[in-house]
Design a protein around this nucleic acid. Structure first.
Ligand code: MN
Ligand code: MN
Ligand code: MN
Ligand code: MN
Lengths: 148, 148
DNA sequence: ACACAAGTGTAGCCAAGGCTTTAATTGGCG
DNA sequence: CGCCAATTAAAGCCTTGGCTACACTTGTGT
């Protein structure tokens, strides 16, 4: 018979890591919408609800709700029946998110992930890469490039 | 003046990647609870709601709800006021998730992320690593080990 | 034996992020 | 100019994953 320990071992995992992951999760949707609105303004001159919804793969009421949250958080502005615009903070977020997305894709490719898969996985992964990890990724990529 | 294009460019991103990320997200909580229940059964001989909640960093009603969902999905079983057990499918999921978690941590460390940060980030990242990427990670780690 | 603390269950609240349905506005075209 | 299709808004539903407050079991210690 194997014995059945009932004392909690001192190597019991701490719950903080889950809180960090939950915090990242709460930002994920906001980040994707901010980036998308930035893309649309660059490509089309404006970001309309319909286009945002189409590119995010959701219905337009869902996009409207997300934009409402962006506005509430001071990341976007809009007036009824007009397009959506990013605030200064929104633009800053969008740029940061875009850069991080690219770095994540590049790192995945650098360790041997097929480009197509890298692009798919990065869309989820990007939101959970801390500043520390991102810096390490960039260092790794710089070294890879130099060594090649 | 910069011109304002209004035609959607043919390089417009496809929304499938967001759907993939959303699908992964829907599994994330289930995966973490399954892994945690597996850990508790190994370490303590049983998984009690209170211990699950403490380790996940949530209140016990939240843990109860998650377990209810695990049961609904055929991954766990339990009777009132008794501990929680994993089904065969639950054990399989827990094992898969545990292995993937380790591989993600190892990959992060291999590309230069500090061990402590790697552990924190992995808790969120793991759920968005596809089978294809995971295989690439393992290949990369095997090659790194060989080359060192 | 039983009182009481710890553990567990249950009800109900909230926000987020999906959805459908219905109403209102806009803007282009005949 | 005025009509109509496309766009946007608004209302309301669902599930998930948090929470608090309260009720009920369990099982240990005296
Ligand atoms: Mn994303
Ligand atoms: Mn992205
Ligand atoms: Mn996790
Ligand atoms: Mn994990």
């Amino acid at each position: 018979m194997t014995e059945t320990p009932n004392e909690t071992p001192d190597n019991a995992p701490q719950p903080e890591r889950f809180n960090q992951a939950r915090a990242a999760q709460a930002m994920a949707v906001l980040e994707d919408y901010a980036e998308m609105i930035g893309d649309l303004m660059d490509e089309m001159g404006e970001a309309r609800i319909t286009d945002i919804a189409a590119r995010m793969g959701v219905t337009h009421p869902t996009a409207t709700k997300a934009v409402a949250r962006l506005k509430r958080e001071g990341l976007a502005m809009s007036r009824p029946y007009r397009g959506v615009f990013l605030t200064e903070a929104g633009v800053a977020l969008a740029d940061r998110v875009r850069g991080r997305h690219r770095t994540v894709v590049d790192l995945l490719i650098a360790v041997g992930v097929p480009a197509e898969t890298a692009e798919l996985d990065a869309e989820g992964l990007e939101h959970y890469v801390s500043a520390t990890s991102l810096a390490a990724f960039e260092m790794f990529l710089a070294n890879s490039a130099a060594r090649s």
